[in-house]
Structures are given as C-alpha cells and as structure tokens.
Design a binder for these strands. Structure first.
Length: 583
RNA sequence: GCACCCGUAGCUCAAUGGAUUAGAGCAUCUGACUACGGAUCAGAAGGUUUCUGGUUCGAGUCCAGACGGGUGCACCA
C-alpha cells in the first residue's frame, strides 16, 4: 500500500511531465506532512524548488502544475499558498477507504522497500567477565530497535553481537582463576565472581611486579594455545554468555550471531600480511601501520592529525611491535567475514560517539582494500546522572545494567500495587513496565544528545512515557473486552467527525514514519509518532462515543480503535516494547 | 593544539531548508469527574533558538567566526 506521500509525489512528477517540464537530474519531488493543520494534510515545495532550478516564477509554476495535476481521487483541489507551496487536504472518502484497507493489511500501511539490502547490525557488544552497565543501554536498545525496524521495512537483517572475548585482561583473569577463584561464588553469580577476581589481581599486580609478570605469562600462554589456559578462557566465556543470554532474554533482545573477537584470531596474521602486500600498511617503529594515502584533504583524512599547526601522521596500528594485534585488526577481519559469509551490503555499527575516529580509519582502510560495502557508524551520546555528569555510582563506577532494571521494575511495582489485579499479574506487569520505561526513555531521545537518566520521568504515568503509551493500548483493548469478542468489523467506513478524520490521517502516516527512521537511524521519530498517535486516539476517544453509537458510525469507530490498537502494538514492538491487554 | 558532537521555555527534550504563532512533557494556573479505564481530555501562561556575520525568496536547521560544555587524538578495547 503506497503512502499518501508516495502517491502525491508520483502525481506531481506526472504533472510535471504532462506540462513538458523535465525535472533536472537528482531533483527529488518532496511531499511532506503539513507543518500545520491549517494548511491541510500534506504540502509540497516542489514548485518552489523547481522554479529555482529553472529560474522562473514559483507561483506561476505552481499554477501550471495544478492544471496538470490529477489528484481528485485523493484530495480537494490543491491550493497554492505563500511563495508557492502546494497544499493538499485529503478527502473524507479517500480516508475512509484507507481505513478500510488498513484493517486488512498485515503491514499496517507500511510499504516494503524496493531494493532490500543485506544489513549486518553490530550492537551491544559487552565484554566477557565484566557486567553490562548503563553504557550498554544505548547501543543495545538502539541497535535492537533499528534491527526490528529495518527488518519490518523489508531488509534482510543479521544481528551480530561482537562480544569482547579476547584481550589483555585475560592474563589477570587466568592468574586469578588459578590462585583465588571461589567455585561456589562462580556458580551463584559468575560475572560477579570474575569481576572480584580481576579486581583483586589488578590491585595486587600494581603493587607487586612479579604478579604482573605472571599475568603476562598467562596471557602469552593463552595466545599460544596452552591447553589449560584455553580451557579456563572457554569456561569464562561460557559462564558469562550463559548469564548474558538470561539478561537478553529478559529484555527481549535477540541476536542471530554471537561472534566475539576471538572468532577472528586466526585471520589476523594473514590479514596483516595482505595489508602489507597490497601496500596499504607498512612497518613503522616496529609496528605495522596504515598511513594516509595523501588523496584526501588533510582535514578529511582520518590518518592525519594536526599538531601545533602541522599535519602529522595518525596511523591506524594493525600489529604492535611485540606482534600483538589490536581492535582495528579484528574489526577489519570481521568486515571480511561479514562480506564473505553473509554477503553484507551494509554494516551498521551502533557504537558511542567517542569511537568516531576509529571507525573513520577502519572504513577508509576497508574502502582502500576495494571492498564494496556501505558502513555506517551510528553514533550516540552519553547517559548522564542527575548532576549532568557521566552516570556513575557514588564510588565512581559505572552503574550496572541489571541494577537499573531491578530498580525500574521495583518502582513500577509500587505503582502497579494499587491496581486491582492478581499478585502474579501485578508482578508480570511491573516487570515489563519497568523494562519498557527504561527502553522508551532511551529511544524517545535523539541519539546524539546526552540525556539525563531520571526514574521519576521515565516511570511517570502522564506525559511522554512508556506507561502512558501502554495505557493507551490497554484502553483500545478494553473496548473489545466489553463486547465479549462478539464483534465483526465491516470494511465499510465513513468519516464524519473531525476527531475521526485526524486519527485516520495519523494512522495512515505510520507507513511514512517507519521509513523516515532509517534515513538517519533515529528511532526517536517513531517514538514521537507513537506518542502522538496515543494522544490523537485519546482525543478521539473523548470526543466520539464508540459503544453508544450505531450503524456505520459505530463500525467506523470500532475500526479506528482496532487499527489504532494494532499500530500502537506494532509501533511499540518496533521499539522493542511489549504491550499487555490489561494493567 | 587539531578533529568530532552539543548549545532551543524555569526543568527534561522535539522540530525532514519553509508559512504572522519554533513544538511537546514536567512544574504553574483555569476548566471537564452520574468516568465506553480520569494512568484521561480541553485550555492558559512561559522563547532575542548562546552570540556575530554570510548564503537563500525563506535559516533553530546550511557556511564562516566567537563564546560555553562534552569527547577523542601511536602500539587498550
């Protein structure tokens, strides 16, 4: 089902051609939702943009355009306004028709993309033997939501959790495992025990040089494939993954793959060889580095940095002097794998903004290697505490992810306690309202802005919050509960009241918003849409009695409730938020 | 030093280069409670979009500069 925006855009193009005006190459005919309901439902600045390109009078062109424009089946006669805007007001007939077709459309009016891409989305990426913390909130939920949305839009999406399962910290962990591990504690809370061990060894190594040496020896043994150390490492990975699966399952997050850094170990040496052979990397001070190829302007070159007015090399190191490999090496090998095994057209990295330089280097290196893949760093800002600084505990550590959700659920429980529901149901509802609140607080923000983490705000019952949205959904269900399921929805609809009209227009825009999100990877646009839909529905609900009405009016209103219900559910689902029938 | 990101109402945040009036939510004030779930709705008030220039018919948005905040910059990930 094409959206109104698509339809109007096509018709405008047809009108241009009919008027013998060929749009200059690259010129896109844009139709947007009207900025103000005074101007109708949709508006286009096509005449203005085109007039500019052709150097003619925009209002004149708009008039010509309207003469050739055939939109009678969609809207009233378009109006020219201001410097040359075209305003479109959809007719009640076309809206009634749209409503009828929405009730029978599995895709809820969201067209599938014309050219599906194979997209690998890399997000969350926690480390082995370390607890997830607030820093993982943004990557995990942004990534999950984008994956759901891209999939629903028709792309082939592969989610890959690039676990940090290989690195220098394992020297200390293995040393600690051998000398101070408490098996009982490990059974109880594996990650916590591994963290304890790591911290103690770390502190000890700082004071005692011989401990540090011992850790380094353990690390080298691990890297050389020592059976015992490899076994310990595997157990660390397993117990951590077991716990991670539990957390992800609770949060409703799914990955198609868990390919950690270690999965690429044996590809690193050949990769570096290759880079050397291809002349992309060279040895410098004993390390293997990728330097600038001098083809870009210095300001745009990720391999240059300005120091005291001079542009100096900022190489990307792929092999240390001691022979060790790095983050960038693994990332390059990972890209190879994703292209070779999964035929990736695109790779999206949902990783914080501080890593921008790293990705610019890795992307540039990949392009220089002649790989054809679209790589995008979907960056995001920080979560701040109430004081406006990085969200930390009083002791300066980052706040644990599990603790955040525990508290969210507990606080939600306080509110749910007042409801007239069974204890089991209360617990269940508190659980997912708490989770939903944290997710929604994240996803309703613009990803680049730092935001303040606030319990009171995210769990408020009013305003732009998950509880408000879920409540709106519950109300749409309660209508049908009242009918005891004895209702058949007829596709025959007729729009009479203004509130019905406004709601229908809003429902029809779901198909536009879903695609808008993917233009700049911004689930907050969908969050805003869902909130506006809930709002619009509440207004409609207040203004238009449903059960007390009759005939086609009643049927139309029931259809409005049903479609709203489905779109709210789907919209929230695309944000990774579950709904409930009652609360 | 250089690069990137941010600067919008008292607070927390929106706003695809568009329209006399830059939107929401909190908080504040005024209405609607014999309630299809009031966890709601209708409304009021609140702004020099940090500042200065520029491009444009048109700028919160694009460009240049200043100021303020954050982050990152050679063998960690």
């Amino acid at each position: 089902m094409p959206t109104y925006r698509q339809l109007l855009s096509e018709r405008l193009l047809a009108a241009f051609l009919k008027a013998n005006i060929t749009p200059p190459e690259g010129l896109i005919i844009e139709v947007g939702q009207a900025s103000d309901s005074r101007f109708g439902d949709y508006q286009s600045n096509a005449a203005m943009v085109m007039a500019k390109a052709l150097k003619i009078n925009p209002r004149q062109l708009a008039t010509t355009l309207i003469e050739h424009l055939d939109v009678a089946d969609l809207c009233e006669k378009p109006e020219i306004a201001g410097p040359g805007f075209l305003n479109f007001r959809l007719t009640k007939e076309t809206l009634a028709q749209r409503l009828s077709s929405l009730i029978n459309d599995d895709r809820l009016g969201v067209p599938a993309v014309n050219i599906p891409q194979r997209i690998v989305i890399d997000f969350s990426a926690p480390n082995i033997a370390k607890p997830m913390h607030v820093g993982h909130i943004r990557s995990t939920f942004l990534g999950d939501s984008l994956a759901r949305i891209a999939r629903f839009a028709g792309h082939h999406v592969i989610t890959d959790n690039h676990i940090g399962d290989w690195g220098t910290q394992f020297g200390m962990i293995i040393h600690g495992w051998k000398t101070r591990l408490n098996q009982e504690a490990l059974q109880k809370d594996a990650i916590q025990e591994l963290v304890r061990v790591y911290r103690e060894v770390n502190a000890e190594a700082k004071a005692d040089e011989s401990i540090l040496t011992s850790c380094k020896t353990e690390l080298v043994k691990l890297q050389q494939g020592d059976a015992e150390n490899l076994g310990i490492w595997q157990q660390c990975v397993k117990v951590t993954l077991d716990q991670l699966h539990e957390i992800y399952s609770r949060l409703g997050i799914h990955f198609d793959h868990y390919l950690g850094e270690s999965a690429y170990n044996d590809r690193l040496a050949p990769l570096v060889e290759n880079l050397l052979n291809e002349g992309i990397a060279r040895i410098s001070d004993g390390a293997t580095c990728i330097f600038s190829d001098g083809l870009k302007k210095p300001e745009e070159d990720p391999f240059l940095i300005n120091r005291d007015g001079k542009w100096e090399p900022a190489p990307c190191i792929v092999r240390k002097t001691d022979g060790g490999f790095l983050y960038a090496t693994t990332d390059l090998a990972t890209i190879d794998h994703r292209i070779r095994e999964w035929q990736a057209d695109e790779i999206w990295y949902v990783v914080g903004a501080p890593q921008q330089l790293h990705f610019r280097q890795v992307f540039e290196a990949t392009h220089r290697r002649g790989k054809k893949v679209r790589m995008i760093h979907i960056a995001f800002g920080s979560i701040l505490g109430p004081d406006g600084k990085m969200f930390k505990t009083r002791s300066g550590e980052s706040v644990g992810l599990i603790e955040v959700f525990e508290e969210a659920v507990e606080r939600a429980g306080v509110v749910v306690a007042e409801r007239e529901l069974g204890d089991d149901e209360k617990a269940k509802i508190a659980e997912f309202i708490g989770i939903a609140a944290v997710k929604y607080a994240e996803l309703s923000q613009h990803r680049m802005t730092d935001y303040k983490f606030s319990w009171d705000k995210m769990l408020a019952l009013q305003g732009n919050t998950a509880p408000y949205l879920i409540n709106a959904y519950v109300r749409t269900r309660s209508i049908f509960r009242k009918l005891d399921g004895a209702v058949t929805l007829d596709p025959t609809c007729e729009i009479t009241e203004d509130a019905e009209r406004i709601l229908t227009v809003k429902l029809a825009q779901f198909g536009e918003i879903v695609h808008d999100v993917l233009v700049d990877f911004r689930p907050n646009l969908l969050a805003q849409y869902v909130y506006e839909l809930a709002n619009t529905f509440h207004s409609f609900y207040e203004a238009c009695p449903v059960l007390r009405s009759e005939g086609t009016v009643r049927n139309t209103r029931l259809v409005l409730c049903e479609v709203t219900s489905r779109i709210l559910k789907k919209g929230l689902d695309l944000l990774g938020i579950q709904t409930t029938e009652r609360m």
